[in-house]
Design a protein around this nucleic acid. Sequence first.
DNA 1: TTATAAAAAACGTTCGTTCGTTTTTATAAC
DNA 2: GTTATAAAAACGAACGAACGTTTTTTATAA
Lengths: 217, 217
Amino acid sequence: MPKLTQEAIEGNKEHIEEAAKKLFIKHGFHGTSMRLIAAQADVSLGNLYNYYKTKEDILESIINKYELIINTKLKEIFDDIEEPLLPNNLINFGKKVQILVAEHYEFWLLMYIDVLEFENRHCRKMFENLTEKLNKRFYNHFTELKDNKDINNNVDPAIGFTVVYLQFFNYFLIEKLFGGNNHLGINDDEAIVKISEIFSRAIFHPNALEKFSVNKQ
Amino acid sequence: MPKLTQEAIEGNKEHIEEAAKKLFIKHGFHGTSMRLIAAQADVSLGNLYNYYKTKEDILESIINKYELIINTKLKEIFDDIEEPLLPNNLINFGKKVQILVAEHYEFWLLMYIDVLEFENRHCRKMFENLTEKLNKRFYNHFTELKDNKDINNNVDPAIGFTVVYLQFFNYFLIEKLFGGNNHLGINDDEAIVKISEIFSRAIFHPNALEKFSVNKQ
DNA sequence: TTATAAAAAACGTTCGTTCGTTTTTATAAC
DNA sequence: GTTATAAAAACGAACGAACGTTTTTTATAA
């Protein structure tokens, strides 16, 4: 048989990893056997080792690729919103986090595997210097708000945005993976609005809030 | 050999579960073998089955006991603070969450195991109707604030407190388990203050904030 | 002596991985 | 246009080790 093209190899790996991912997030790393992966991917047990040296290699490849996807999605979200702190944009941002978590909650399950089995070795860079990174991305937005004295005393917009960013993720992860079941006592859409309102009040000076008020929408 | 007293049995189980917990949070459920647990607890493999029917029974017992501990600790924290939303009390509350996570981060690792392997069956009740529960506990405090018109328009104090409560936990879990490494760009003590300030601004009317201002401390 | 705890041995499975074999197919030879 | 070749891919039996659990044996103390 002639050598497979690089694309064919990638395609086959994609197929295997799709199957393995399903099993890993259902049974954990050690709870998933190579035989199960092979069966789920409709591939022979031995052939798996033509593509991966070890079982851990499969998990690593899955996590690395998924991290790329998530980072791309996050970049897309951030590219779409130039001034995320504005109240209406905050709501839109929340909705996008909602969609991201709904479509890719599996990534966070993989992250919990990573936390449990590898001390979050693969995913920890997502949290390092988070505020600094967000500050760089929205530097113009944040400094403009500060220069205009729109921001409350003692509140750093970069920290404020990091906090609301993490809050949205945390909210939807609790709902999706931890059995929250409308844990705030309101539905998701209302929760997005409520959380946005809370942080708008937190970040903006009352006068600025007037300026950005909802009827501007 | 005479029958063990109930206390002796409980003591032995405590000893075994202490060992098993260490291993579960390090290698996950399926990554931990009964032989390893026996060795770690300095007990024979067969003897484990005099105390537990299955391996899963050990995990269940650990989680159930730990959940009791955490709920007790949370109750203690809430018993200590009658008016948690007041800015200074919010900081104190943050410090207590900091200590709780530092001393019992293992519980959240067990929760991630529960999420991955059992759909959070054991721990999900911690998140159900969270706002409602907090609202009941601090009903007097919240209604007093509302009656005094200390609260910002559209902000529900129960939801606000739930959000800051989750925010503190999320912050310290990211730091402890996810490799955050001062992810807000400031140290833990500063983070507590910053998060408290953010939520004080969010929840309280500016006039009320004056009333509760820091020089009251 | 006797009931029971603890230890040890054994059971049948399943694990991750290896490896010899078979199947496949682009290409060279006719 | 058919066939032979050869390299690569896919397969699946087999390996030794380890798994969770059961059964048997030994030690202990009233």
